[in-house]
Simulated assay, not measured.
Amino acid sequence: MRRSLADDSRDVGRTLFGEYHDRYFWLLHSFGWLSYGALFWISNYLAGGSSRYWVHIAFLSGTGWLLSIPLRYFYRRIWNNKAGTIVLLTTLACLLVGMVWQLARNFFYFAVLYPNKAPDAWSGYYGYVVAAVPILAAWSGLYFGIKYYRMLQLMNEKALKAANAAQQAQLRALRYQLNPHFLFNTLNAISTLVMVKENDTANRMVTGLADFLRYSLENDPIRRVPLEQEVRAMERYLAIEQVRFSDRLKVHWQVDEEAKAALVPSLILQPLIENAIKYGVAGQEQGGNIWISGKRFGSDLLLAIGDDGPGLGQGKSTSTGVGLANTRERLQTLYGEDFAFTLSSREPSGLTVNLRIPYQTEE
């Protein structure tokens, strides 16, 4: 079901006005008015004011704390209006509540603290009725500022989650693209073996294919695996290819012990080895060699897959199908710019695919 912008806005609103943020509001609200009263008292003390004035300050802070609460619930109601409407309604609300607050202050001052200074006429109680408006306007500005800041945080969190989900979906798609590509080649070879009555060989290939696919399905394409585990998976894969090519395929491993603990994207080597077999072994009557190496170099892990086939410019281009492009895209999705993927010629012939990724042993 598709979601609208209004649905997302309501979700953000429910999060902003949730139980946790209720507690957060009361904490900030009480601390703010307490600070206001403390600053007022310090100012009065430094100015040499009456010691009884603290009662007035306590009343002023307490009524401010109380009268600003309705503003909060009013601002919730107008939250989804246009900016101009919010500004207008906020100004009117501050004016109305500020007048009530100032009137209460005046009555308390003259009726309770200093009745001998009380004005003779009721009109005297209405002096400076808008003096409290700037304080409430500042309270409102802080309220909206904190809310908008929190809303931006929530929207950024949702955007990051969406980007992360998209990245994971992309990685899964890239990884799963390899299975049909590999399956086509292997099943085609099995079909050929069946046609020429080499059933035992075909059966070994089917068994090897089942083992390799089981490993592929059991490993999350998003997670990385130790290089040692990747090597074992490639040995299963190469066992299938050994059935196809017999002694025409010679594999040479050179993986350092320290490198085996490094984390690599699962099945990252498979398309590179398949590419080397396709161009370095299958196309040559006498077959060929494949060299697979891995070593740590400082803070990096260096991987290389080489063959002694025709090499670049001799039947093999720098864009040799889905395997290399897919691998490069997976690395870029996982590591951003912190990787290297290069092709280099071997002497006297052949091609080497070189990978450099960060050496990491923990996710």
Rank of each mutant, 00 (worst) to 15 (best):
V231L: 07
V206C: 12
E235R: 09
G208P: 04
T333L: 09
G32D: 03
E274Q: 15
E257M: 06
F107G: 11
W54D: 02
G283H: 04
K260A: 09
K278P: 01
S9Y: 05
T192V: 06
Y149S: 15
W41N: 02
S43W: 13
I273D: 00
A282T: 08
M234F: 01
M234T: 03
Y149E: 05
E337R: 15
R223Q: 14
Y45W: 11
E363P: 03
E157Y: 06
L355Y: 05
G84V: 04
W26V: 06
L96W: 02
Y237E: 02
L301Q: 03
T342N: 15
P134S: 10
V87Q: 11
G287F: 01
P119Y: 05
Y20V: 07
M1H: 14
L324M: 09
S43I: 09
R77W: 07
F339A: 12
R356W: 00
L66R: 09
H252K: 06
D308W: 01
V231Q: 11
R3D: 15
Y215W: 09
R330W: 02
W79D: 15
Y359F: 11
Y45M: 10
E218Y: 05
A132C: 09
F297W: 11
K117S: 14
T361R: 07
Q284E: 08
E19Y: 09
Q332A: 12
S216V: 02
F74D: 03
